[in-house]
Design a binder for these strands. Structure first.
Lengths: 339, 339
DNA sequence: GAAAAATATGTCGACGTTGTCATGCGTCTG
DNA sequence: CAGACGCATGACAACGTCGACATATTTTTC
């Protein structure tokens, strides 16, 4: 492999001078610089990060540790956000996922440490409460899409599920809906509770009675093996004689079943029932006809800002580890009508 | 940072002996080994991969370079397959994605080289033909889900779209369907052509005339900004007086619109129309009612086997760079009825 | 025009690890 | 009991890079 030494030999300078050119340090004649750069090009020299790291003990690398990248195609955008930031800032990304197994988690932290990474982004694929199992490895960490259980005060950055659901509820109320059904997400997920709370509170503040709200559980059970009642629940809800004029769904994926249930009963969307989702999972929200009005989870921004935040932590900013909350934008499409 | 030297000091041995213990080399007394292991535990020592790398010039790291991890939640399973393999075999994964920009691609190859990674997995999110822009960086490479344009003879590993579509078509024919509609995937994707070819050939071999087949384009245009005709095309197809008894869809995502189109026309699935998809994109195929019969893209296996293959290439196996094809398994659910 | 300052380049060692070779000691062989 | 062998350990150099410091050359300053 071609090293700094071979470049130096070809350019007829010392290796230190080559190092200076590579790192853009001052005190190199234009002429020398050009000769060195030519040698670098000719030889196809690429600096060796590993050597740089043992010298300077800064790896310029972040690690991402995730639970279920895969079983859930939802939140890949978080990873993309991180990668784009990394790319723009000359950082490298090391990736690992636990598949939910906590014994693997400790291994991964060890692996990260063996690469002397500068910081860790701890990403969960659903908004939830967790406890990183670092196995006494301590590396600057930012949590994305999750908050720590014990108050170990790791900074975290999460979507504002509450505000998103609030906006969606108001949106329906503003359009005259007074009987609203709600099909709940798996209660395991933190977002589920926040969204439901916002729905209840907003509807209540507006003056709706609890009896105007038809709240039902759509899913439950462990992530990846949950029981799904959505179709049955939606069918039942829509067969009530005093049926809701709008249904709010725990997430977009569940709306597929709500759409089908409604259509099977001969109801038109949105004329007979309005439907809103949550997440803006575009594979679904754009494929449905009419297209789905929903609240977009700011996954990409979560990733980007998380990386940014981690960077400032690594750089030693003493900002108290706080929980940042990123708003969910309401995306208006055509699945809701005004009454 | 605690290094091998500090461990040696505490254990009262030379650093080489510590190295021997770490690497499980022979010729260390049981007693010495224990003393060293204790010191390692006490100090929380973790070997420094970077140092190991400059010594041995083997990084035990693979890079993954992808085009659109993100915009498409489809193929994250490939990445999961790779990661699981890596985890089981003590390799580390460096990730980068181009977002489709080829100027970024060259940068990424350079970055990979600067980390002296052992090999690259070049992954595309759709089965297609590409040309890696390595920018004269040469690292052992395996292509996953894509095949090289120029015959540079990089080994590749791809799903068997042809066989999958063949199985699906036979499945319909076996159940008595003789008028079959086909809504095509974006022709940009290699899989689109293969799937269509298999459909045509299999139906033809069975004795169906071209007039029994109703083949229509469902999508076209650049990835991420395609035009989508599926709903309109499906509606039209199902309104023909001699309408097909079954529709085969380019992929699962498109079936959402086919379902809705059918239901809007008052048709029941599968009694009035049978529908099959492709991919087994479970967010969709399991959410639909009735659940979708489809062919599963072997993404996880693609990742796993791709990593395996790369490993053997890196190890210097002289196996001629061939294209391996992994079968798509038919997943039978309830969206098809027998006539 | 001599001293001081600025610029340009080089020498050397250190980072943490492992490969090579050397050494010391006990045991076996004939 | 001498030589050969096997085992356990250590000394030292080298990998590629860069920081600290030294030296050489040019420019500025009074």
């Amino acid at each position: 492999m071609v090293s700094i030494v071979s470049v130096a030999k070809v350019a007829g300078v010392s290796n230190k001078t080559v190092s200076r050119v590579i790192n853009g340090e001052p005190y190199v004649t234009e002429e020398t610089r050009e000769r060195v750069e030519k040698a670098i090009r000719d030889l196809g020299y690429v600096p060796n990060m590993a050597a740089r790291l043992i010298r300077s003990s800064r790896s310029n690398t972040f690690g991402i540790i995730t639970d279920y990248v895969s079983t859930t195609p939802y939140s890949v955008d978080i990873v993309r956000g991180v990668q784009d930031w990394a790319n723009a800032n000359g950082k490298t990304i090391l990736m690992a996922n636990t598949g939910g197994a906590s014994e693997r988690e400790a291994e991964i932290w060890k692996m990260f440490q063996s690469h002397r990474i500068d910081g860790v982004l701890y990403v969960t694929m659903f908004h939830r409460i967790v406890d990183p199992e670092t196995g006494d490895v301590s590396i600057p960490t930012v949590m994305i899409n999750c908050t720590p259980q014990t108050n170990e005060l790791l900074p975290s950055i999460v979507p504002d599920d509450y505000q998103g659901a609030q906006d969606l509820t108001r949106y329906l109320l503003d359009r005259g809906h007074r009987k609203i059904g709600y099909i709940r997400l798996n209660p395991i997920l933190l977002g589920a509770q926040l969204r439901l709370d916002a729905f209840r509170k907003t509807a209540g503040d507006f003056g709706l009675a609890e009896s105007d709200l038809s709240i039902r559980l759509g899913m439950e059970g462990p992530v990846g093996a949950e029981k799904n009642y959505v179709y049955a629940v939606a069918t039942e809800m829509l067969q009530q004689k005093d049926r809701p004029t709008a249904i709010m769904s725990g997430n977009d994926e569940m709306t597929i079943q709500i759409y089908i249930a409604a259509m099977a009963l001969g109801l038109r969307i949105p004329e007979d029932v309005s439907i809103v989702g949550f997440d803006d999972f575009r594979t679904v929200s754009l494929a449905l006809k009419p297209q789905l009005t929903t609240a977009a989870l700011p996954y990409y921004d979560l990733g980007r800002e998380g990386a940014e935040l981690l960077n400032s932590v690594v750089a030693g900013s003493k900002a108290p580890p706080s929980s940042r909350v990123v708003p969910c934008k309401l995306v208006e499409r055509t699945s809701v009508c005004s009454l």
